[in-house]
Amino acid sequence: MYQFLSNKRILGYIAACLAVLSVIYVTSRERAGLTRWEELIRESMRPLLSIISDIASGLNRSLWALTHIGQLSRENVALTRQVLELKAQLLELAEYKAENDRLRRLLGFREAAPYATVAARVIGRDPSRLSSTLLIDKGQKDGVAKDMAVITFGGLVGRVISVTANTATVLPVIDPRSAVGGIIYRTRDLVLVEGYAGSPGLCMLKPLSSDADIVAGDQVLSSGLGGVFPKGLLVGRVVEVTKGKYSVGKVALVEPDVDFSKLEEVLVITGGSAGRTDSSRAREVRP
């Protein structure tokens, strides 16, 4: 026994064991925090652990992918299909949202408008580019008749040129066959607004008097003369003023506020005006 205990190595081992046991006792209790040495060692190992853990994680993912390749392939097909379906749904929802926005604006305009109107949806356009007529889904059954004015929240769209029981064809103001009696809001000069073939999407403004005062930016409203279009509907804004034929008088180009290429819903005016003034209409129509 004495010989055993006199072995320095064994004594050293026993001493080390006792020291470690005391450390275990201390560290197994609830402590306020780690010691500085513990923190130092753990912090110094952190970068290495982080790197190895990243590599391990990557390898693990790759290994998992390799062993589950069949399942992943099936899932991929299913998810791709799902993504496509969701994209389609998303597009549909966006479509509904845009439609909702437009209809809300139209409804607001309709409620503010002093006319009896019928809301219609644009269901067709002339694809030949020969004319810019629009086909709407309301016709005689809905009270739509020839030569009724068609408007939207942006202003005047055009007039009905033909009608069936459930559809109607609208001739927009930008069509060269169209002519609308107008008035310059600022100066009260009477003008004629015609569709202009030379620049699709714009109208040609011709003043009825040679000394009419027209400048770019002027608002053009319908004059109500002629009996087709009610008075005070916004037709567009003057974008360019030039000299007339043979340098006599002046003509101007008018850009309608209505975007005809994106027009989807319109209102057909089926009843008479409540007698609003041009200025009040212009303020309302002005975006």
Binding site: V20, L21, V23, I24, T27, S28, W37, E38, I41, R42, M45, L49
Partner: peptide
């Protein structure tokens, strides 16, 4: 120390 066990076990 690294694994956060009780130190010494």
């Amino acid at each position: 120390l690294v694994t956060g066990r009780v130190v010494g076990v």
